[in-house]
């Protein structure tokens, strides 16, 4: 059984805008594996181990990303964390992709190389682009059902189904779905796992397959910038709010009295 985990490399810290050129300053900003993608990977590996323990079907976890050459390091981290092999879609023709072009490239790679997949995991959203669109768009291109905002999963291979718990606006719900399906993961452990020495050594022996645009399709205009209907016309820093009064005093009773006066002025608290 193949489980594909789509992952994205994202900037670790705050990204700023160059005020002169109006472009993003990416230099000097470290890259990490998008946290939601790491949760997705953890879930895939958990299923793999669970199947092993139950003596169930063998699970192969394949990580897939589209990105620049440096994205290899994010794939390597996934291999250290227990993924079996990796695919890197890397080509200038993929660059500048919006979510439609990104999901299209991912779907064509999956159809071409891993068509017999059982499950696809994505993160709920990437912390840079922040759209949360790639997962559902990928599911649509592949014609499979999707379940978004998932907090835990229970694979039922005998019935070729997956049952998940997902977040809703006012709580949680349990949803069941036929396989193959796509699941976007929204929560997991915030503690960064540090791979063991053995895992690191093992990861170096695992395969990272390189794929270029021509490997996927003759019509490469559907990828990257040329295949992207949305265009970023302008980027700019957000408007900032300015702080008001701030009380630093040794007398908390007096500070609270001032706060109550403030609440009264703004009619959140009645005057006596």
């Amino acid at each position: 059984m193949k489980i594909i985990v789509c992952i994205k490399q994202v900037p670790a810290g705050e990204v700023k805008i160059n005020p002169e050129t109006g472009t993003l300053i990416r230099e000097g900003v470290q890259s990490i594996l998008n946290p939601f993608c790491e949760y997705a990977l953890d879930e895939a590996i958990r299923i793999k181990k669970e199947q092993e323990e139950r003596g169930g079907e063998e699970v192969e976890v394949i990580v897939l990303t589209m990105g620049p050459p440096q994205a290899r390091s994010a794939l390597l981290r996934c291999l250290e964390l227990g993924a079996d092999r990796a695919i890197l879609l890397c080509d200038r023709k993929f660059a500048g992709a919006d979510t439609l072009a990104t999901s299209l490239a991912l779907s064509e790679a999956i159809q071409k190389f891993e068509e017999d997949f059982t499950l696809i995991f994505t993160g709920k959203q990437a912390i840079d682009g922040d759209t949360a669109q790639v997962g559902p768009e990928l599911a649509e291109h592949l014609g499979i059902p999707q379940i978004t905002y998932v907090t835990s999963t229970n694979l039922i291979p005998e019935r070729r189904r997956i049952q998940v718990e997902r977040e809703t606006e006012n709580g949680y719900e349990i949803v069941e779905c036929k396989l193959p399906a796509l699941v976007s993961v929204s929560s997991g452990s915030n503690i960064l796992r540090i791979p063991s020495f053995k895992e690191i050594i093992n990861a170096r022996r695992k395969v990272i397959k390189n794929v270029i645009a021509d490997d996927l399709s003759k019509d490469t205009s559907r990828f990257g910038l040329s295949g992207s209907p949305t265009q970023v016309a302008k980027i700019f820093p957000p408007k900032s709010r300015t702080g008001g009064q701030k009380i630093e005093s040794d007398d908390p009773e007096a500070a609270v009295s001032r706060l109550i006066e403030f609440l009264q002025e703004n009619v959140f608290v009645d005057k006596e």
């Binding site: 439609l100 999901s103 759209t131 949360a132 978004t148 606006e169 949305t230």
Partner: peptide, 23 residues
């Protein structure tokens, strides 16, 4: 841009092959 809207809109966008701006 509710959980429902963000589950639904990308599915429609991908089907019609059009752009979608998030949130």
């Amino acid at each position: 841009a509710t959980p429902t809207g963000r589950d639904l809109a990308p599915r429609i966008a991908a089907r019609l092959k059009v752009g979608l701006t998030a949130d």
